[in-house]
Every structure is written in structure tokens, then in C-alpha cells.
Amino acid sequence: MQIQVKCSCGAESCPEWAIVELQGAVEVQPSFQDRLQNLVIGELCRPSSQENYTFTVGYHELTGSKVTLKKPLLVLKKLKSMDLDQGSENGPAEVELDVIGIIRHKILFKTRPRALISKPQPTVK
């Protein structure tokens, strides 16, 4: 089997994606577990002209920095051709991979979160 790797964005203008990376996982409150969509995770802030960042998630703050990846990451999207005739005759449908983006930098938070105690308490009844 051979899968063609396409690049529909064009070599010169491959759009740049971003990664915000942190250790561990972000726990969502149980009531939002099934509907993450549209939910704000946190605020990314660049306090100074240096490439240092903070990421505030709830009452936790992470500090990190922007790093350039040693090797870029390509964002690939799997495309299945919708040719019905082919699908039934020749087994599985043809698959192609399309390069839709490139990632050269990420904002990396390597540290454990620091609690922001000065913030007001959540509204608990």
C-alpha cells in the first residue's frame, strides 16, 4: 500500500500552528466533562519583552517560555477518498495525507503549578 503525502497549503506558505504544552493534565470540573467545547482553559500572559510566559488556569499559575523546536512538527490530516465505486471494488478506500500546518515553536510550561492564593474564593454556597 502506498499513501501519498500531499501539501495542499503549498511549500512556501505552510501555515504555522502553535502548541501550548504543560506537564500533566488539565482536570475539568465534573459538570463540564462532557462539554469541553467553548470552555476557556486559561489565560496566557507575556509579562515582559522577554520570551517568558505565564499560564493561569483557575487558581493556578504556571511559568514557562517559548522554545523553538529542534525539529519542526508537521500537522498531517488523513483524507479518505469518497469514491464509492472504488471503495466496494478494491477493498479499503484510498487514503492520502495532507500537510496542513507546521509547528516550529511551542510555549512550554515545565514547572509545577503555583497556587494563586490572593484570588477571591469561588462562589460556593
Binding site: 501550548v20 469541553l36 467545547q37 467553548n38 470552555l39 476557556v40 496566557l44 507575556r46 515582559s48
Partner: peptide, 12 residues
Amino acid sequence: LQPDSLIAIAYH
């Protein structure tokens, strides 16, 4: 992101 500014990160 410009110095002294912030952006919210949210689930799409």
C-alpha cells in the same frame, strides 16, 4: 503575543 498582553486559551 506582545509584551504586557494576554490571550485566553479555550477549547475549540
